[in-house]
Design a protein around this nucleic acid. Sequence first.
RNA 1: GCCGAUGUGGCGGAACUGGCAGACGCACGGGACUUAAAAUCCCGCGAGCCCAAAGCUCGUACCGGUUCGAUUCCGGUCAUCGGCACCA
Length: 824
Amino acid sequence: MEEQYQFAHIEAKWQEIWRVAGASQVAEHATKPKFYALAMFPYPSGNLHMGHVRNYSIVDVIARFKRMQGYNVLHPIGWDAFGLPAENAAIKNQRPPGEWTWSNIENMKSQLQSMGISYDWQRELATCHPGYYRFTQWIFLEFYRHGLVYKKKAAVNWCPSCSTVLANEQVVDGACERCETVVTKKDLEQWFFKITDYAEALLADLEKLPGWPEKVKTMQRNWIGRSEGVEADFHITGRSESIRIYTTRVDTMFGVTYVVLAPEHPLVRALARGTAYEDQVLSFIEKMKGLNEITRTSAETEKEGLFIGQYCQNPLSGEQVPIWIANYVLLEYGTGAVMGVPAHDERDFEFARKYALPFPTVILAPDKPLTAKDQELEAAYSARGLMVNSGEFDGLDSEEAWDRMADALEQRSLGMRKVNFRLRDWLISRQRYWGAPIPMIYCATCGTVPVPEDQLPVLLPDDIVFKAGENPLTTSASFVQTVCPVCGAAARRETDTMDTFMCSSWYYLRYTDPRNQDLPFAKDQVDYWMNVDQYVGGVEHAILHLLYSRFITKALRDFGYLQIDEPFENLLTQGMVCMDGSKMSKSKGNVVSPEEIISRFGADTARLFILFAAPPEKDLEWSDQGVEGCFRFLNRTWRLVHQTREAILHAGETPGQLDDAAREMRRQTHVAIQRVSNDVGVRFNFNTAISAIMELINAVYHYKEVPDASPAILRETVEAILILLAPFAPHITEELWEQLGHAGGIHNLTWPALDEDALKQDEVTIVLQINGKIRDRLQTPADMGVEALEAQVRALPKIQELTQGKTIVKVITVPGKLVNIVVK
RNA sequence: GCCGAUGUGGCGGAACUGGCAGACGCACGGGACUUAAAAUCCCGCGAGCCCAAAGCUCGUACCGGUUCGAUUCCGGUCAUCGGCACCA
């Protein structure tokens, strides 16, 4: 009776052996090419979920494959350990957030280890460890030193439920991306990172990332939102000030019939002061303040506005136009003021129709007759066309007029070309405890003073009170009260902590030198390992994490700490793990726990299924039966080795003379080597790689029953199966490799080389078509010439019958594949 | 509204450069083994015409085009998903 596949025993055995041996530890290497494989590090929520399993299985296959190909592979893991859930748990349990976090890390670490992933555990890091966040603070200070951090009072996004501010990127559909509470606006003094200084570079360098999915690059482009336009001054009639507007359609400037300011625009109150309009204006402003962000900025909200009693002058036409305020103009974008061109802008059109403002046409559609009356317009015309009613610019094409009018404004010093971005500066302050404290001190005499580098880290205090709705750091007297590093007087510490995205924007750099006590990373190490050759994670980070990381990398490069322009060479965004058509989530109750699957079938089965069920970038539908199928496959592999083991152990070194069946078996082995190498190494289609191995197993099951099956060929095939399968199912293959009498470990082998000669076939099947429709098939020698083949095909009775009475127009022959006879 | 992606059997998916549509797996059906069941092994499995076979016809969301030949290329339509959305 043959031995059973005891996955639990085998997996525990090899995990211990690998752990003791430090099997995946790496250091810089003088000659081997390096490869940096990275999965987005997890938040220590407490338990691994299937999304993690998928993410880490994908990267592990890549890492193991690259190792076998001779690369020096860095494959690290760590914990994105700061954040709100720990703090909420602290409030609930009245225990410190660190306690919750570290015990979660411990638990998830053992779950991760049960998956048999080839991490270099020596490099493990956690962002909540003082040895790490010390350098998060260090980076903050570097940015401060270089003028890329500033503090300003602004109307910021506030999540009432999380009681903290949020970055623009963390507001999704007007709600908090974490808890989905509707975000409000609050005027607060906050710390910002000047990501907008890098807007142009962040946009332009997307071109340097051919290894990124187009989808992610498009999302970043949209988020950065570059637009080319003109700023122009409309002089306010009877006053000294001007209103500066921003427009991308300077060519429509002769069609301006009003100018609109955002209600919050600083000029508004001044312009209304003491006029008959003042009361109305003030109450309109109040009304706008009361609206939440979603209704305020939604395109569906009806446009609403108010004339404020003043006029200004069109800088090009000289015309007087009324000044309005309206809800659809945003203070934060451009100059907070726009010109209204109802005939050529959809929004202005809607607004003008509501308030009976005129809409003169200044650009004619190419096919539109000049007779069309302005008031009969049914919609704004926003495309290019012929300039009319535009003074000296009449008759020009609108695109040419754009440049001429911009020139005219610049010459008269009434305006200038301006590039605008939708991207705003990154708000990094958080009114929370469980994050890296912002290393700044407020002194009554010296002002805002950075904490000196040698005083880092600014440690999180323990003497705090956790209460909902309050920043816990403000309750720690020992933390708040400090001395000024400049003058030594009593001073107050900054009590805000940093956005956790700050911590996760540089962790991939720390892995290259994780225990450095003096610097976030040493130059030679970071230069050796960076950049990340393959990064894998969920598409939900397309903007937040991936944009911030690119920014931090570029800035650190400019400070002289890095040589790279971009952190992540290749990016793979994996799909979600779904069940019953929707993403597995606790709230939907459709979760399958990795722990349960691993205990029932083993880690190898779990890994294999999650890689086999779908290509990595697509969503994956969970199937319990599919898991069982993969388990069956591994059992089949196990039995195959045990059934052929005796023959293999006694096989001679050389196969000798091969018969047809042996040659065909050998061919199939090398077809599989070719396919798996390409699918894993080039295409990242792990599902088809696994299919190819399954096919090879099916083939050898038949071959081993053939009389006189060659033991040497059996050995080559079975060993190839194990090696090809090793990156996917590391434990079972390691065990079976040992059982076949090999020492030294399957994962230390070199990836099998392809024997091109073995792929050659003596005979091939040729498809015979008439007018493109398949009529027959023909076995021919593989090396048959085109003419001989065509002659043979024409002579076939079936082909003769089908072409009888018709004229053969031409014959198309694809050697080794098909012959198509075109008849009339 | 704009941008991007996707659409193939009962299901997950394959077909890499325009050349045998449906590999591989799941489910299902049949058979072998077994006292029996499980496990395992073998065979079948897009639809229609047909008792069946041989054979023929249709078939990759829909309509059309290019081509000897289209799941693949081009134009249009529809549907689903994702991102952005009063950004001037």
